[in-house]
Amino acid sequence: MSTTLLLIQILNGLQFGLILFLVAAGLTLVFGVMDFINLAHGVQYMVGAYLAAAFSAMFGSFVLGLAAALPTALVIGLVLELLVFRHLYARSHLDQVLATFGVIVFLTEAARMIWGVEPLSIDVPAALSGSIEIADGVLYPVYRVAIIAAGLGVGLLLYVVVNHTRLGMLIRAGASNAPMVSALGVDIRLLFTFVFGFGAMLAGFAGAMVAPILSVEPSMGDTVVILAFVVIVIGGIGSIRGTFLAALLVGLVDTLGRFVAPALLKLVLDPAAASQTGRAIAPMLVYILMAATLFVRPAGLFPARR
């Protein structure tokens, strides 16, 4: 009983970690290339979820909804870049944080006005509903397997693009020395707009994928973006590989912690106190992990080479 539960929790942690990776990837690429810190990145995740919910309801199909949500999320990201973010690149990190904070206030309220405060929920697409048997007598929802597969697929795609294409070479070059890349005749602005739009779309994709299994609400992006920050701090800002590993680590620690911490505490405390303390400690584990990582390696596990 306990091992099957553990197996399911590990898969849930993996799935959560991959969602975090999709959000954090855009964040870390944008920071790596343009030294721009975008607090409003979580809003893209929220917008993606709402768009998927709205378009799915409109077309009556999750796949069509997803197909319509992705370009829309991309366009919203690009419009924000054009209207607000573009004016912030030359500013201090403090200004960037504050202005993007204003963007969150605005878009969260906009979502509330358009779709209401009540959380939306959409059905898991019929083709992916149901469960599969992953081990003897252990059932796991197909849709969550699909999220894991999609996350791994995007991770692989990013790896190939960043490490083995000309575009990826420019991104890496831009991250280590943007003025030099610009001096060599590359339109760094255009490159950045591309990276930004792509990052926004990835976050939107993550939001759209979780829409059927979570409740879609205006503030859903906030916690995710803060965890995404934890991820890129642990992984080392600007490093895709570090972000990937840190995302899985954070996803697993966060999910397993809620399950393991009370169980472990039961060994030393009485059951009621153990579950109470465990519930208090579990959500803190990720942050303790971050603090411990920074204590040993202040620049994260895989700091990008500068």
């Binding site: 810190i37 990190h93 920050f229 890129i232 701090v233 942050y287 603090a291 920074l294 202040p298």
Partner: peptide, 10 residues
């Protein structure tokens, strides 16, 4: 920026 994110996390 690390400090911003870390204090946010704490």
């Amino acid at each position: 920026v690390y400090l911003i994110m870390i204090t946010l996390a704490f």
